[in-house]
Simulated scan of single mutants.
Amino acid sequence: MSRRRLRPEELELWHQVAKSADPMHKGPNPMERPEPTRPSLRKTAPPPKPISDFGIGESVTPQTDTHYFPITTSQRLKAEPVQMDNKAFTRLKRGKLVPEARIDLHGMTLDRAHPALNRFMLTSQTRGMRLVLVITGKGSREDPYDPMPHRRGILKRQVPMWLRQPPLSLIVLQVAEAHIKHGGSGAYYVYLKRTR
């Protein structure tokens, strides 16, 4: 069905009827079509805004605070609170206290070193010893030509974690890096709790 155009008298009659009726919907009358406007053939773009002076990177916020640098085992041990007597701890750090027993884990694999450490620590505690020395070694030196960098000294990192886990956590009071005369960063002092 095609729509036909209303004649002027029909359109006038329609307007009189539309004025007397209440509209169902608010808004423009759908029967009244606005006159079509002819689009201009030439579109004019708004003028570009002038570019102000700037420095390269001036609006970027510095992000130097977001870098995360992992802490070493030595730093973690230094940050731990002192559980033992402060005077004894100072003497321990200066190498003035002599360990009563020692275990050397050099060259052992993790599956051999862990049970050996557990056995040594529990035996030392039952014998009433207070200070023992655990030698882990510093680890193999890094190869500067190795294409894949890797962390050295697996036992050096693992032993402090083992000492903080059961069953050893129940008998260990303090763990500290050894003085240079007892092995330095390749060994740990382990101060044991008293037997009750």
Rank of each mutant, 00 (worst) to 15 (best):
I135L: 10
Q75F: 07
L163R: 01
R102Q: 13
D143L: 02
S2T: 13
I56V: 15
H15N: 09
Q158H: 15
E177C: 09
P144T: 03
D85Q: 06
T109V: 05
Q63G: 10
K19E: 14
H179V: 05
S40W: 12
R38H: 10
R102D: 11
R91V: 01
K49L: 14
S140M: 10
T61N: 15
M121W: 00
T37E: 14
T195Y: 10
E35H: 15
P28E: 14
S20W: 06
K26P: 09
G107V: 09
L117M: 07
L92H: 03
V190A: 00
K96Q: 13
D53R: 13
R127C: 02
Q75K: 10
R3F: 15
R152F: 04
S59N: 11
L173F: 00
T123R: 12
D85W: 07
P48G: 14
P62W: 12
K43L: 14
G153R: 01
A45P: 13
G57L: 06
K87M: 08
L168E: 01
V60A: 11
H67T: 11
H106S: 11
K93S: 02
Q83F: 01
T123F: 11
M148C: 12
A116G: 03
Y145T: 08
E80M: 03
D53H: 15
Q165S: 01
R102C: 07
P166V: 00
A113N: 00
F89L: 08
M129D: 12
D111I: 05
L11E: 07
M161Y: 04
L192W: 03
E12W: 04
V132N: 01
P46R: 12
M148G: 07
R130P: 04
T123I: 08
R4V: 05
L192I: 02
P46Y: 10
